[in-house]
Design a protein around this nucleic acid. Structure first.
Lengths: 182, 182
DNA sequence: GCGCGACATATCTGTCTGATATATCTCGCA
DNA sequence: TGCGAGATATATCAGACAGATATGTCGCGC
């Protein structure tokens, strides 16, 4: 049974406590989102698939007229989660539009500085947000380790931008001719 | 005219010299791939769209019986590229399966160590590959700056893994109880 | 002259995002 | 009392994107 990594995010979240799709989305947005995001469409689709596969069990818990399905892990689900944890991680991807703009900056050299400044601001803002989560003591155990990674990583990126900015030639010039040999 | 960021990768590549779709894929795989990847399906689809939009011009250059379309930037295309470079970067995303596994490691605490070791190996291997590109002198100008970022970033991640490994409790235990407050 | 690997284009399936639709519930406040 | 804003909750669509695969040509070594 091949599952997407997002399916395992759901299994992992539900391993803490039974959750609705909405709960899962909120928790992902407040935690794994910075290294693994998930959208509603993905979450609800996976939830149905995982129930079909017997890894999750849903029990309807309507509050008055409002629908709500609480999903909990089955024994098979817990086993699948554990097996996934013990496999080698595969996916590591970055998508950084600022780096892309810097890469092509020779087509508009004045843009290099503003792009780097925007990237620095972005990392600083995210670092501060994550530090707020640290101070709020929202994460413990492994989650706290990963949160620490997030903070330090954003701070490293922020400081790289500062260094790069300092080394950038001032006149909006091109730091030696550009391009990558094919 | 709304273009995807991948469209601008294509405009940027073609701004260096006219290229075929195949050329673009090779160049992306050897350069921007680590912060902005592109697949053939995406590239050929965008190439058609950009030509429709008048930002690229294609000239057929068959070698004997082998088809080949050389794409070059039009004046509108160069203008669009410059305008994009001067806009604020928006997308910054990471997808790191190792971090995800570490996050949920309390469901299989022995996995934390092997996950971190795999992540460390991954970053080391990528760093070495990028350092090889540096030594080969394949990048100059802004591309070299971005390559330097890649190397330093991978090395930072590698060293973070080493630090985390050193701080991990030895007996496969759980570093204080887990979970994230909703 | 045959086969392998590089060159070249195209397309399919499936993952995933972001926006949007729909409906209910809660709470503050007029 | 009643009403509107915002939180809760599920669902779906269009489109971006990756990865695999199909199809065919070319050059080169053996």
């Amino acid at each position: 049974m091949e599952l997407s990594a997002t399916a395992y995010v759901i299994l992992g979240m539900v391993s803490w406590r039974p959750m609705s799709g909405y709960d899962i989305k909120q928790t992902v947005d407040g935690s794994t989102r910075f290294f693994w995001a998930a959208s509603y469409s993905q979450i609800y689709a996976e939830l149905h698939r995982l129930e079909q596969a017997g890894l999750l069990a849903a029990e309807p818990q309507p509050t008055g007229g409002r629908r709500r399905n609480l999903h909990r892990l089955t024994d098979d689900g817990r086993r699948a989660l554990r097996e996934w944890l013990e496999r080698e991680p595969e996916t590591f991807e970055m998508r950084d539009e600022a780096l892309l703009k810097l890469f092509f900056a020779s087509a508009s050299p004045e843009s290099a500085r503003t792009t780097l400044e925007a990237k620095r601001r972005h990392h600083r803002a995210l670092a501060e947000r994550l530090e707020g989560m640290q101070r709020a003591g929202k994460a413990s155990g492994y989650a706290a380790i990963v949160l620490g990674y997030g903070v330090e990583c954003q701070r490293w990126m922020e400081s790289w931008c500062e260094r790069a900015l300092a080394e950038l030639p001032t006149g909006g010039g091109d730091p030696a001719s550009d391009e990558v040999a094919a």
